[in-house]
Amino acid sequence: MWIFWLIAIPLVLFALGVVLSKNLFRSTIYLGATLVLTALIYLLLHAELLGFIQILLYTGGVATLLVFAIMLTQRIVGEDITQQSRGLVGGAIASLAVLLILFFFLGSSQLDFSVRPYPENLNLALGKNLFVTYVLPFEVLSVLLLAAIIGAIVMARRDR
């Protein structure tokens, strides 16, 4: 249990840093740290595959690209981007409300929270589910992502 708190407290602090930091670069670095700590929580829940994929894709991929883009614009182009963080009060109220709703519903729900044993070979079970049972939604998702990437490139290079 103490390990959970050891991860959870810095996790919340870094998450606050993401939204409250004035400096966009620092904000993204805190985002990277937040994502790593979330992955550690997954590891605590014995979801190794999910945890490492989280680090690989979000920390190593998405957040790195964000940092890269910010470094290019800020230090090389010389454009200074500061985070405005407008509507802090409204945001705080909204997140508190979500927290209360979650507490309320999880407290009164009839969900089964007992730990079920994992399948013998977790990777195999996950793979079977993803690539055999749910292969169509999986492929549709990847086509959607591809369309989003192409769309972004077209929009960014409209002038050429």
């Binding site: 670069f25 670095i29 990277g32 790593v36 992955a39 190794e48 595959l49 490492f52 994929i53 680090i55 690989l56 920390t59 190593g60 991929g61 790195t64 940092v67 890269f68 470094m71 230090r75 990777n123």
Partner: peptide
């Protein structure tokens, strides 16, 4: 999931380089 672990951990060192540079 050792292979995934290697890739995940390997991607972290990019941060050290980026932070040092920035």
């Amino acid at each position: 999931v050792a292979v995934l672990y290697l890739l995940a951990v390997g991607s972290l060192s990019t941060y050290g380089v980026l932070l040092g540079g920035w």
